[in-house]
Every structure is written in structure tokens, then in C-alpha cells.
Design a protein around this nucleic acid. Sequence first.
DNA 1: CTTCGTTGTATACAATCGTATACCTTATTA
DNA 2: TAATAAGGTATACGATTGTATACAACGAAG
Lengths: 233, 233
Amino acid sequence: MSQTKSVLAEGKRLLMGAALNLTANTRSLSAFSLRELARSAGLNPNTFYRHFKDFDDLGLTIIEEMMNQIRQPLRDLRREAAESVVPPGSPAISWQENPRLNFVRSIQVSNVTVKLFFEFVESNPKAFILGVRELHGSSPVLRKALRQLMKGFAQDMAEDIEVLGLLPTLSQESLLSVAEVISREMFQLSMDYIEEPERRDEICQQAGTSIVNLTMGSAVMAGHVGLIADALR
Amino acid sequence: MSQTKSVLAEGKRLLMGAALNLTANTRSLSAFSLRELARSAGLNPNTFYRHFKDFDDLGLTIIEEMMNQIRQPLRDLRREAAESVVPPGSPAISWQENPRLNFVRSIQVSNVTVKLFFEFVESNPKAFILGVRELHGSSPVLRKALRQLMKGFAQDMAEDIEVLGLLPTLSQESLLSVAEVISREMFQLSMDYIEEPERRDEICQQAGTSIVNLTMGSAVMAGHVGLIADALR
DNA sequence: CTTCGTTGTATACAATCGTATACCTTATTA
DNA sequence: TAATAAGGTATACGATTGTATACAACGAAG
């Protein structure tokens, strides 16, 4: 069964790939015909029904796969970035002890993460195009699924920020709120990143400063002005 | 001619209205058929060709109209908000003179603007749905047009922030960059606002704090930590 | 070896599609 | 008043659509 599913589900995989291609290159998921999809996958139209109930079903399946393929790697990116700045075994130093060190570290982690994120986007452009497109697309089902996915990202990010000590103490809710804004912004920027290769450096840099602005702003508003002031001195 | 255009262009207006309805309620612009559109407008299919070359043309026309109907009102909202906090004739007081006053005023303007913005969204939901949907939609033409529109918003916002003295001095570019992030976030949130009426207060509030975080963060990073610290004292 | 579920194909058909051509009204204008 | 242009309709046609029904290949289970 499991072998059957991974080996013989060739048609299913072909259809999902074709859907990614069509979505990326031209239309949105609900805008091309079943026959067009099948043609692009080199299959008989009816084969679609063997695997999917309708286009929402297809979309959900793709999104689910995206979820598995992207979420964990993104977390790894963040850890990787954090550890590239401070080696894993080194002793923790609190923001109170050394604001400047933590500030610089935080910015570096942010910049490295941004860079790695966009590299990840570059290597999976179709998945991101589909995701962002359907996030505001015509299917309520897909919209809901993608919002949940993005909420998941934000939660991961918030958790990582806390665990890695990337910000002075914030309330759970405001930390999550900041993470949500950041992830929305990053996904939005990923479209520009894909579509305007000549602006990639600029986009990367802008994303970085936006994140810094947001996080430092939230820290300041949470009562850590003194810390930030010290860090900037 | 001008009378003809505004009085007798009934069909054109009907088609544009039908497109808005279809886009808002179900599909994206390129996902419904010409006949479906005409049917929904109560017109003969061929009437479409009397006014539009293709769907991109229709979309551009709608977007152009959106631009005219939304851009100026949004500026007015901001002025209105600013003047509701500080009456028009009153003497200007610089951030250096009184950080706290300017800080409070800035937050109030932000909150009022956010509230007015979402009320505006609520009264033109279809236009916003179409705009946000096609911003990441399948037509490159419409995407480009909508990005320009959003860039325009951001420029307006940056200009207003400067003229109204809502932030300590920032460089032109970083001010514009902040405005771009804010406008992206606001448009994105407008979808949630429309779709989740029960969360409207929460969304409104979150938008407000995000703006404050971003702007204050950018002020801090631009070297105004002292000012902000004084304001928060 | 037979049976059966899975995956894919072939054929078929009514509905819908985009659009070409021709025609009708109405308002403007020469 | 006659001519013209613009806005809208009617009809028609070939292409494409979604999907129903029937059938073929094949690995697994009995």
C-alpha cells in the first residue's frame, strides 16, 4: 500500500506537477480546465477523478505537501542562522547583561534568515506562487488552509524567537502578532523576489530592515527602550 | 460625447459591476467566462466587445476607476484624522520640543486612520477584494497596474507623514519603505476584515499596533531613540 | 488460478464557450 | 434631412468543456 502510494501514484504526481506549472506560468488554480490540466500532464482527462474529487481537493493536497516540505526546513533555516552567529554550545548572555551583543546578534540572525528564506523561495518558486496566489484566491477552502499554514509559520517563528532569545521579553500575544506581520510581509515579498530578479538585493535588504524596525519597535513599545538605547549607544 | 459616455454607457457600467460581483463572490477575474459575465449583467455576450478588448482591458478599466475613487479619499481620511487630533490652525510643535505630545498625537492619528480605512473597506468591499486578489493574480498586466497603485498609496502616505509631522525626521527612502510595508499590511488585513466580521475589532487594533511598532522602530533605528525614550517616560 | 481493487484509457454527448456576421435602434452631425 | 457612429441584439458555428459509461492492464489477496 505504502509502496503502491509512492511508486505507482505516478498520475497523481504528474497532475500535481502540472497544476504547479500552470499556476506558476499563467492561471490560478480554478482558472484552467480539467482537460487542460490533464493535457499538460500527458494524461487522460478522467484520470483526474481517480485521485481528486475536484479542484479544491487537488489544491488542498498540494498545500498539504507544501506544508510538510516547507515548514520544517524554514525552522531549520532559522536555527542554522542563529548558530552561524553564535555557536551552539556557547553560554547564553541575557539582553540585560549585554544589550549591544544581543542586538547585533539579533540583526545578524534576521539578515541571514532573510537571505536563506529567499534562497529557499528561489528554489521552490512555483509552490510559493501557488500559495500566495490562492491565499487571496477564489476558493474559500484553499484560503482557509493557507491562512492556517501561515499562522503555523508565525507560531514557529514566535517560538524560535523566544527560544533563541532574539528579542527582549515580550508578551506571547504581541510576539505572535509581530511574527504574523513578518511572515505576511515575507510571503508577499517573495512574489516580488521571484518576479523582479534585478531587485533581489534591494528586496532582501528591505525585508531585513522591515523586520528590524518591527521587532525593535515592539521591544521599545513593550518597555525596553532603555535596553535598545544601550544597544545603540 | 461626454454626456453619451456617462449616460448611455450603461452596458459598460453594468459589465464592470457584474465583474465586481463575480470576483467578490466567487471567481477571480480570469476565471469566469465572457458569457457568464454578460449573463450576470443581463446583456448580450457580444456587448462585451463594444467596450473591452479582453479581460485585461476590463480589469484595467476597473482598476483605473478604483484608483480615482480610492486614492484621494484615503488622503482625505488621513488629513481628517490628523485634524481631529490637532485642529488645523494650531501652531506646530516639533518632536524635539515636545516628544511626548507628538508621540501621542502620532498614535492617535494612526488609530483614527486605521479605523477610517477599515470603514472605507467595509463600504467598498468588492473593489478591495478584486484589487487584492488580482495583485497576486494570474494576469501580469493587472499585477503591474495594482503594484503601481499600491506604490502610489505608499507615496501618498509617506508624503502625508512628512507634511503632518507624524514622525521624527527620516530619510526619504526609509520613510517610503515604511509606508510601503504599512500599505501592504493594511490591504492584506482588509481581506481578513471583510471575511471575519467577528474579529474586526481585533484586526483594527492589531493594525494600529503594527503601525506603531513599525514607525517607532524606524524612528529608533534612525537615531531617535532619545526622543522616543523621552516620549515614553 | 481466480478474484478484485487500483490506475489508467477510449468513446461519447450535451452544455457551454468565444466570436464572426448581420441587423436594429438612437443620437450626433454635416 | 440624410448620413454616420455608437450601443445593443440575434443567430450561428466550430471548439472545448465536464463527466458518464465501459473497458484494459496489473499487482495483491484469496
